[in-house]
């Protein structure tokens, strides 16, 4: 296979498949049951991985946005757009699985007092606006405004998290501290595998979609040439 993009897809695909299979087998069959939370703790592995990878996606969008503004190369705009979309899907997944966990662990579907759940809701709002802006801006502004907004939104993420946390610590002390802080090694391993699997999946999907955009650009160019005759 001579096309480097195709080779990357192959490598990432194999990697994703192996890591996902290992992770699922490991966390269901090998990892011990959590003494405190029981079975539901098994949600944790992929839930937290997806959450972290969605932040990674937004980080990639941030860097790609800065690169686009510097170079004005359309490829970077593609990276921003695809990363934000993937990150948003993963953030939605995070909130849904988080909500399921909340129901299992604390008996309610939604608790605002969990700062992570609240922050991810804000992040979804923040990045949804990206698509509103993008579909509204036209011409060369579209890519530039999108890039600028991807930068602003990524800077907003830690600020929002901090604001949510501060607001809650005043009204009621944080009850649920980070669940993964003190994990025995037998659990940590499977978490790392799950995280690696999701990271590989993110880059795989990114690569596939970049190739779609490449094809689309080539087709657009052909169309222009045909029109010009």
């Amino acid at each position: 296979m001579t096309d480097p993009a195709a080779r990357r897809v192959l490598v990432l695909g194999v990697l994703t498949a192996v890591l996902t299979a290992t992770g699922i087998i490991g966390l269901f069959l090998v990892a011990p049951e959590d003494s405190g939370e029981g079975q539901i703790q098994r949600i944790f592995y992929f839930h937290v991985s997806i959450a972290l990878v969605s932040l990674l996606a937004f980080g990639v969008a941030f860097v790609a946005g800065a690169m686009y503004l510097r170079s004005q190369r359309e490829w970077w705009d593609d990276v921003v757009f695809i990363s934000v979309r993937l990150g948003l899907v993963l953030a939605v997944l995070t909130v849904i699985t988080g909500s399921i966990w909340a129901k299992a662990a604390w008996g309610t579907w939604w608790i605002w007092s969990d700062p992570r759940l609240a922050t991810y809701t804000l992040v979804i709002l923040l990045y949804s606006a990206y698509f509103v802006l993008r579909s509204s801006a036209e011409g060369s502004r579209q890519a530039r405004f999108s890039a600028v907004y991807a930068i602003i939104a990524f800077v907003s993420v830690p600020i929002s998290f901090y604001a949510v946390r501060v607001a809650q610590s005043v009204v009621h002390p944080v009850v649920f501290t980070s669940s993964g802080a003190a994990m025995p090694h037998s659990m940590l391993i499977w978490f790392v595998v799950a995280l690696a699997a999701m990271t590989a999946l993110f880059f795989l999907l990114l690569q596939v979609e970049l190739m779609q955009h490449r094809a689309q650009r080539a087709l657009r160019e052909v169309k222009l040439r045909l029109e010009r005759g």
Partner: peptide, 26 residues
């Protein structure tokens, strides 16, 4: 950015308010 876009009045609140949530909270 919103003013130079097509649907400016509609875009601005969606764009501005989520970013202002930390300011409103604090």
């Amino acid at each position: 950015m919103s003013v130079f876009s097509r649907t400016r009045e509609l875009v601005l609140p969606v764009l501005l308010l989520p970013s202002l949530i930390p300011v409103v909270i604090t």
